[in-house]
Nucleic acid binder design. Structure first.
Lengths: 209, 209, 209, 209
DNA sequence: TATGAATGAGCTTTCATTCAT
DNA sequence: GATGAATGAAAGCTCATTCAT
């Protein structure tokens, strides 16, 4: 049973790999199950042996991203360096993670869209997706806010920083990501340093360097 | 020679209003022409008297947003205040514009998604959308970069600032927008000040106030 | 009332002219009421002031053709020449009539198609058209058969000729028409003589001239 | 490497059979994909597994007819009998072929109509069909003309016969076909002999029988 | 397990016809 | 009479999902 399990899981991952590539290329709404099957080199019906349906593929893509995010957050939490250094590490870690897997990252566009469509609870038609993209950002903000507070009391960060500033830091990352996704001429990887430099030291000249 | 033109344009705007509301509620991919018609209180076929098809509605939504953006940029360009003040005005203007029309702003999710799906030019299947969302951000970055350079030479901004930092400023806005769109508990309007404060002065404490 | 009537009829004819032109160009099934209106230089709704609906335009086209046919038949009946000469006149008259109005003649394709679709009475879904294209050929055959019989008893035609041979003579005309309609390189007008020559004298060499 | 190919091709033929029956009954323009599917006893969507779309069904009908025609022409070419006998064989072969499959033959009405609609190359709206009905008649005329010329030099046919007379012979066949399609009281099969008799010997009495 | 043929709900789009102006 | 905006029934086509093999 154990080896079967591994095979099964490996196959599932292969299919998800394929799905992510196609989602990145065509976008989720334009991707047909058959496209995924073709990319994975299997038959259409076989996809259903590993995934409940089309949306499950997107949800599985979300899971991958969420897992990567959780890892980045865990790494940052484990750091014992000063808060501002930990913050810089967090930003770099997040950007590196996103830039390392462009196809997977491109799926974020679809997750935002699908997740955002669920922002109004009025009607359950269509029912909201099974994944909670907002939760990912909540966690990021929570950790950043904690670092900001720690940096304000123990380190050299300004006191009084909190959720709003955390949102801005997360925004700087995600906003750069967005520009990259929408415009390939923007190079996400090279924006990691400007993000930390701008957020930590601002754009205004300082009395002494 | 514009006898019914006013009516016709007004009708078109009404339908677009309706489309924007439905797009905001259900997302573009899940929106059927009939939903738009119902929201506008007209028959399905009538939509086609004013718009070429479903994608034309999205493109018209883009046009609205692009027009608003152009206005914000024009206002900022016309400002004769110091660069850092102009920058703050630009941020505030953009955020205010976005927050003032939540439904229209929510369409950005679909524009990002549709525009991003065109990020790979490999195949023309499906053909890329008629609108260029990336161009909007290019213009924002260009103006911000110009302000940063001006502020570096004439004002109190750091010298050497350019495109990367401009991308970060734009990212701070769009990233906050994103978090708001995906999570209604984030209040975009209240993030305008934190954005400018963080970007201009950074998060690090300054030697003197 | 009289002058009104003339105006009304003239307008009706104008619209029918336009319809015939468009039918010839695009075929009846592909012709929209709006195409006819545009060709006639009037508004779509105005067509309905003169014709019951789309099919009525086709039926009116049939009427025109039927009237032309009736005229050709009447001319031939009125002839007091020998049967074989009258037959030649009939063929020439029919071909001349058809070649003189190519657009109207092209509508025959649609009439055959629409009329033929009604050839099976099984179901009345869709209901058969209001015009009877088969009747036109019945009348032609009847007159030709009469001429053949007359030519057999009084003239130099073979005795014993009847409906089958009449069908062949009519077929020679309509078959040339068909080839012309389907292939513009076939010149209908120049086929009038070969039709009569072939039908009357055959293709086989005759003992003496 | 043709494991399911037989089945697939057989299925395709079944669907085409059904389409031909429905086309014959209702005419192509009035036939909906669903009618074809119902006639074939399958679901609407399944038709698209075997044919690109509605027009592909008509084109496939044309292919069938063209194949039959090619066979008739090949048989006539292979004949080593005198030209006038070969001509009679050709006429009989064509008529027999047409009369043997009335439903398929009825599709000619739609092919004429669709092919004729493409007679004016002015605009490509709608684009012309993929099949070339005119080519079928060109081939018939070419072979008949050849036989006529051969019969003029080697046989007992008149000298000087050519394309015009070939058109008349083809017309006699197709014109009888037309009358049959439009009027079931005309019996195509019985017209084969009158066609050859009339064309070869004419209607005029001969000095000696 | 794997396949891919089959299904049919669902969607976009067209257009004949109506009717208020 | 004339108009053309509005309607909504149709029809073509797609594709997620199922299931017999």
């Amino acid at each position: 049973m154990a080896p079967k399990r591994v095979d099964r899981d490996a196959r599932r991952e292969d299919i998800l790999d394929a799905a992510v590539r196609v989602f990145a290329r065509r976008g989720y709404p334009a991707t047909r199950i058959e496209d995924v099957a073709a990319e994975a080199g299997i038959a259409k019906g076989s996809v259903y042996l590993y995934f409940e349906g089309r949306e499950a593929l997107l949800a599985a893509g979300f899971e991958r991203i969420a897992r990567r995010s959780a890892q980045v957050l865990a790494d940052a939490r484990r750091s014992d360096r000063p808060a501002n250094d930990a913050l810089a590490e967090l930003v770099e870690g997040a950007v590196a993670m996103l830039a390392a897997e462009p196809d997977l990252t491109a799926v974020m566009l679809d997750l935002w869209s699908a997740g955002g469509a669920a922002r109004r609870a009025e009607d359950a038609d269509p029912p909201p997706p099974a994944f909670d993209i907002a939760a990912v950002y909540r966690e990021y903000r929570a950790l950043v806010a904690e670092l900001l507070r720690r940096g304000g009391s123990e380190g050299d960060l300004r006191p009084g920083l909190g959720e709003p500033e955390a949102a801005v830091v997360v925004a700087a990352i995600e906003g750069c990501l967005l520009q990259w996704l929408v415009d390939p001429s923007v190079d996400l990887a090279r924006l990691a340093d400007p993000i930390t430099a701008t957020c930590l030291d601002g754009l205004r000249a300082r009395p002494e360097g």
